[in-house]
Computed example of a mutant assay.
Amino acid sequence: MDPEPGEFLSLLSPDDAAALRAAGRPKRWDRGDSVMGEGDRGGWALVLMEGRVKVSSHTSSGTEVVLAVRGPGALLGEMSAIDGSPRSATVTALEPIAGVVIGDFPAFLQAHGRIAVLLMQLVTAKLRDSDRKRIEYGAFDTTGRVATRLIEMAERYGEKTNGGLRVALPLSQDELAGWTGASREAVSKALRTLRDRGLIETGRRRVVIHDLEGLRKRAR
Rank of each mutant, 00 (worst) to 15 (best):
S183E: 07
K160R: 14
D196I: 02
E175C: 09
L94C: 08
I209P: 05
R204L: 15
I135D: 13
G24D: 03
D129C: 01
E4N: 01
P26C: 06
R52H: 10
V69M: 07
P106E: 07
K54N: 03
H58F: 14
P170A: 02
L20F: 01
T124H: 05
G62Y: 14
V101Q: 10
T148Q: 13
G62T: 13
A168R: 09
R197L: 02
S88P: 10
N162I: 08
T90N: 07
A147E: 02
I200E: 10
T90P: 06
G163Y: 13
P14N: 09
I82S: 06
G71D: 08
L48T: 01
P26S: 07
E7N: 14
W179L: 14
L215S: 08
D83I: 04
V65G: 12
G6M: 11
L48F: 00
K133E: 15
G214Q: 00
R114L: 04
G163W: 07
T180I: 12
L212A: 12
R220G: 06
P5A: 12
S34C: 10
F105P: 02
V167F: 10
F8E: 08
R28I: 09
E159V: 15
G164K: 04
S13Y: 07
V117Q: 14
D16P: 00
D40E: 11
E159C: 13
S56M: 13
A147P: 01
S56N: 15
L12P: 00
D16L: 12
G214S: 02
R114I: 01
G113Q: 09
L169R: 07
P14G: 06
A190V: 03
L9H: 05
R21P: 01
A168K: 12
P26N: 01
M1N: 15
L11C: 03
R195M: 13
T143D: 09
I102H: 02
G39C: 08
S34M: 10
T143E: 14
R204G: 12
G103A: 15
A107R: 12
G73V: 09
A139L: 14
L191Y: 05
T142M: 01
P14V: 04
G42C: 05
L109P: 03
D174M: 10
A147V: 03
D2E: 07
G203Y: 11
G71L: 08
S88D: 13
R31L: 14
G39Y: 05
Q121E: 15
G138D: 12
T161H: 10
S183H: 04
G77R: 13
Q121A: 07
E136M: 11
R134W: 02
A168G: 03
I115A: 00
L119I: 00
E213M: 11
S34T: 12
A219N: 08
V100N: 00
L119P: 00
T92I: 12
R145Q: 00
E78T: 06
G32D: 03
T124V: 02
D196G: 04
A81W: 01
E64R: 07
I151N: 03
G32T: 08
D2T: 04
E4G: 03
L48N: 01
H58G: 08
S88M: 06
L67P: 01
D141P: 08
R41P: 05
R41H: 11
P72H: 05
G138I: 05
